[in-house]
Simulated scan of single mutants.
Amino acid sequence: MPKVLIVSDSHGLIEEELQKIKQQHEVDYYIHCGDSELEYSNPTMDRFIKVGGNCDFDSRYPNEEVKKFGDFTFFITHGHLHQVKQNLMTIGYRAEECGAQIICFGHTHIAGVEKRGDQIFINPGSIRLPRNRREKTYVMLELFPQTKQVDVKFYTIDHRIVQDLSCVVSLDNK
């Protein structure tokens, strides 16, 4: 089963946080949903599928990425260009245009997961400046293609599971 690590809104954190998070987990894919505030080529960002946020000024960052991991298609963006602070409708429509079932975004700094129709919206929160919670968070996903389930685990920056945010979500609408 593919495993995916998702972070966002690290706002300049390098060695202490991002490197330790990468070293803590064995995963198949790494995603950074923007506002790293690092140069695109910074070695800390190696192995990350990365997009630019409103605080990223390196023009090499794309606004969005669409990636297929096994049977799951991911739409990855920061969210500021899709007004995610107002609602998830615009980002959901864009992901649908791209054929994506899993939407990864940041910008709000609010950790959460939500299923709407045949889409799963995941915001890993912020590992630097969280909102609505004290914990600085990131996400680990485990994908189960046979059952169309996604195990979403939120972790604190010191690698403890945040139980009340973590869940298993099914893309099977039965």
Rank of each mutant, 00 (worst) to 15 (best):
V27P: 03
G117P: 00
C98N: 10
F105Q: 12
D35Q: 01
G12T: 03
Y30W: 15
V84P: 00
N173P: 05
V66D: 09
C104P: 06
H82P: 00
K136R: 15
L38S: 07
T44N: 00
L141T: 15
C98E: 15
L165C: 03
I76W: 03
Q83H: 12
I161C: 08
Y61E: 10
I102Q: 14
A95R: 02
T137R: 12
H80A: 08
E135K: 07
V162M: 12
M140D: 02
I122T: 12
Q24F: 07
S170A: 02
I161P: 00
I122Q: 11
E135W: 09
T108M: 05
G112T: 08
T147Y: 07
D172E: 14
Y40N: 06
V150H: 05
V150M: 09
D164Q: 13
M45T: 06
L88A: 04
K85F: 05
S59M: 10
T108N: 02
P2V: 01
Y29D: 09
F144R: 13
G53E: 09
E96W: 05
G12R: 08
C104H: 12
Q19N: 12
Q146T: 13
G52I: 10
G112N: 03
H159C: 13
N54V: 07
F69D: 00
G92K: 10
V113R: 10
F72P: 13
C98I: 02
I120Q: 01
E142T: 15
C104E: 12
R133Q: 13
Y61P: 03
Q101I: 07
P2T: 07
D35W: 11
A111G: 13
E26L: 06
G52A: 06
F74M: 11
V152G: 08
E114Y: 04
T137L: 04
S10Y: 08
F48S: 09
D58H: 04
S170Q: 08
D71L: 11
S41V: 00
I127T: 15
T90V: 05
